[in-house]
Amino acid sequence: MSYLNISRLKISYGEKVVLHNIDLAVAKGEMIALLGPSGCGKTTLLNALCGFINVNAGDISIAGRDITHSAPEQRNITMVFQSYALWPHLTVAKNIGYGLKLRKWRREDIDRRVEELLQIVNLVGLAEMKVTELSGGQRQRVALARALAIEPDVLVLDEPLSNLDAKVRLNVRHEIKSLQKRLGFTSLIVTHDQQEALVMADRIAVLNQGRIEQIGTPEDIYQRPATPFVADFMGADNRISSVDIQRCPQITLHASADSLLPPGQQQMIYFRSADVGIGQLTDSRPDQGLIIEGTVEQSAFLGNLYRHSVRCNNHLLLADAGACWQAGSSVRLHVPATALHIFASSHVR
């Protein structure tokens, strides 16, 4: 049974519809990532959930309590903002306890709760420091502790890690996920970072142009994309049409019958550079999957691998390998049938 339920939600700004009949059910203690490109409606959905904007149609409820038209302060939902939104003139302790003070908690109870949260977010000993003296990762922990202080029904995180450098971001996202599992709070996180969503979320909702294209576990979204948009957004950066395969003798496809669409129906095939094997033309030819013969145009060193651009007629495809293939090399690319995402061309937008 769902704990947070969003049903047929519609949001418009004037004549422009931003969210189209959104349905989303979240279980208690679950973390859902809202993933999608800029302008797809992720933050608008969060703002509607928090009561910052009005809804045109639909319902929002928590534990059976309708909050669709409730004021923000009546929803018991807290948000961790991208900018942290901390009070710069206050100490760490006073920032964390600010919401409790507004709720007229007793001073000794506030102090006890703040000390508990400082331990939870690994900020023990920093209570009397000004937040301006903290690192980005520490500020994010303060913002998280402040949000958790009032024990919200739902915790909302809007691009919470985007202001952190890469190394700190990796640490903090694991800390937030560990904390969510430990405390069991229900949470929605907005991000445009696919890896961040895969690491942190129990399920992912991929949004595109105000609609949810697919909801599923990280494994489902990554390995079994339901639409061409999801496949492309989740890193399937190569694509070839069935027409190209028919016209080009350098490209052949041998896939299991259940992965192919009915005969005569045009197809678009998506696959990731990480799933492409590179070999010499003299190597034994695979008997299944997608096989492409082409010429290496350039390579880029990415640290743990090389990403190659391979030309086959009018197609420029990307393929990753541990070793660097020199420009001008004639190669054979192979993609296993299990790594191919095949859709009807009519579904490609």
Rank of each mutant, 00 (worst) to 15 (best):
N238K: 07
R173M: 05
R112G: 09
W87E: 06
L157I: 05
A63V: 01
M79L: 14
K94E: 15
I342T: 04
S178E: 13
R203M: 02
S299A: 14
V124F: 00
L126M: 10
P225Q: 07
G64N: 04
N95R: 02
I67E: 00
A337D: 15
F81T: 06
D220G: 06
Y98I: 10
I67G: 01
L183M: 10
E15Y: 06
I291E: 06
A257C: 12
Q265F: 03
A145I: 00
D287A: 06
G125K: 02
A33E: 09
H192F: 06
L35E: 11
L24Q: 04
E151A: 10
V310Y: 08
D23G: 06
F52C: 08
K16Y: 13
A93Y: 02
N5D: 14
C324P: 01
L148G: 08
I245Y: 12
L281D: 05
L260V: 10
G289H: 01
N76T: 02
I77L: 09
Q267Y: 08
G137I: 01
A319K: 05
I269A: 13
N314M: 10
K28D: 09
A25F: 04
S187H: 06
L253I: 13
I150F: 00
V131M: 03
E73F: 02
A321Y: 06
P249N: 04
A327W: 04
R311K: 15
I215T: 14
V310R: 12
F52M: 14
E108L: 05
H341R: 12
A236G: 13
V348A: 12
N122T: 03
R272Y: 13
N76H: 09
L100H: 05
V230K: 05
R146H: 03
V335G: 07
S330M: 07
G36D: 10
Q74K: 15
R106L: 06
G294N: 08
I62W: 08
G137C: 02
L305I: 07
R307H: 04
D258M: 11
A147G: 06
K177G: 04
S330A: 14
I110F: 07
M200Y: 10
V310K: 09
V348K: 12
Q195P: 00
L134D: 00
A255T: 13
L4N: 00
F52W: 06
V114E: 12
V206A: 07
V92N: 06
N314H: 15
G277P: 00
V199R: 02
A147H: 05
A27H: 11
S83C: 01
L86N: 09
A57G: 09
I110S: 07
T78G: 02
L155F: 08
V243Q: 15
L134F: 09
L148R: 02
C312E: 04
L179I: 01
V26M: 08
L148K: 02
N122I: 00
K28N: 07
I204Q: 12
L305A: 15
Q140D: 08
F52E: 11
E219A: 15
V156W: 07
T227D: 11
V276G: 02
A57R: 11
S187A: 15
V199A: 13
H334K: 01
G51C: 07
A127T: 05
R169W: 08
D109F: 07
G58N: 02
H254F: 15
S346A: 15
G279H: 03
P263Y: 03
S12V: 08
D193W: 02
A236C: 15
S241N: 11
V168C: 03
K28R: 12
V168E: 06
L34A: 10
E108M: 03
S70G: 01
P263G: 11
Q246E: 14
C312D: 05
I120N: 04
